[in-house]
Amino acid sequence: MTTPAIAADTRPWRDADAPPFISIRNITKKFGDATAVDDVSLDIYRGELFCLLGGSGCGKSTLLRMLAGFETPTKGQILIDGQDMATVSADKRPTNMMFQSYALFPHMSVERNVAYGLLREGMSKAEARARALEMLQMVNLEAFARRKPHQLSGGQRQRVALARALVKKPKLLLLDEPLGALDKKLREKTQFELIRIQESLGVTFIVVTHDQDEAMTLATRIGVMSDGVIQQVGEPREIYETPTSRFVADFIGSVNMFEGTVGPAAPDLMRVETADLGAVAVPPVSGLTQGQTVYLALRPERITLTRSAPEGRNDVVRGLVLDMGYVGHLSTYRVRLENGRMITVTQSNRLRDEDPISWDEHIYASWNPAAVRVLTQ
């Protein structure tokens, strides 16, 4: 394998002077009175595996189709490698698109499916065949070159579609829910295959997905979309650990959210008064005023459950375990606090003792101040 296109210590988006490979500037797309994409601006860098993440109807696929040239923006500008795409038709753009359905030709062999686009462009049969076999080797399907699509598994068809999309050596590959048709186990395996192929070729990938786990696994960065707007852009860890809004915190993983008001500040901590948890200590946040409404986001895995009250901890609440779900590597607890509020807690089963906490137990839930994320919107 060649060196990854984006090395861990050379993330270009952290360099204010790095030129973007794709510049999306104030793009809006309307269908009649409905706005699918609303004034989106976004920079994506060469060699990235960028994920557009959001629920159905959020505008992510429409944005992808505008990059491909299948939809025309109502207003705004798209530049790819410095070239304005406004007058460039879909077939002339340095892009290729892989659809969720794969759209393979059922009457053609795997090899002919992959070579089809090259032959349409006038490449000789010998050269097109050689290029197709090279791509099939890349996706570990050279032994299946003469088979028809119906003779392949879902994962194999997905890799044929990927080979066909890459065979023309696009600068940018657009993938619309590429793993959506696969079962959970195969999808997880294929995610790492996709990363390996992308790193080997150095092609920039933009992946549209509604699956948070998929985006977190694949992406160099994620753009979270809702209602046609990019809500936050960041590296997976940044999106999960430091969301900038309640929407992002709730959309990515599971979270317990509490409303409160800003209380007095100390040198190293700030107090937030809440109805559900009482006074909560949190790291200081600049720009807040006393009495201001804020929201506290607390991930379930950052909460600790104990049978006795932990010593030296201020942020402790008492509750009753109502439900417990065992999912192998972890257990999920639904705990009703004394004021009736429900919270969710997850604990690793690797850390559980011989007498784990179970249903109908009175417990104490505690956390460190650093575990709490303070949000203003």
Rank of each mutant, 00 (worst) to 15 (best):
M342K: 13
E338R: 03
V233W: 11
A181Y: 01
R159Y: 01
V224H: 02
R112Y: 08
G223K: 06
I222A: 01
T190Q: 08
A365L: 11
V294E: 04
I197C: 04
E354T: 10
T376F: 02
D268M: 06
R187N: 02
V372L: 04
I197S: 05
I44F: 05
P4M: 06
E48S: 09
T332P: 10
V224I: 14
M85E: 07
G263V: 03
R131T: 07
E301D: 11
L337H: 01
G82C: 04
D213M: 06
Q290M: 13
A279H: 10
I44R: 06
P94K: 02
Y102Q: 04
K184S: 11
C58T: 05
E188M: 00
S41Q: 07
L133T: 05
G47M: 07
T244E: 14
G328V: 13
P73N: 07
S254T: 15
D15G: 08
D227W: 00
L296G: 09
D213L: 06
P4H: 12
H107W: 06
T242V: 13
M85T: 04
G57C: 11
T261H: 00
S89R: 03
Q231E: 15
T209G: 10
D15W: 08
S101C: 06
P300A: 04
F192L: 14
E142V: 08
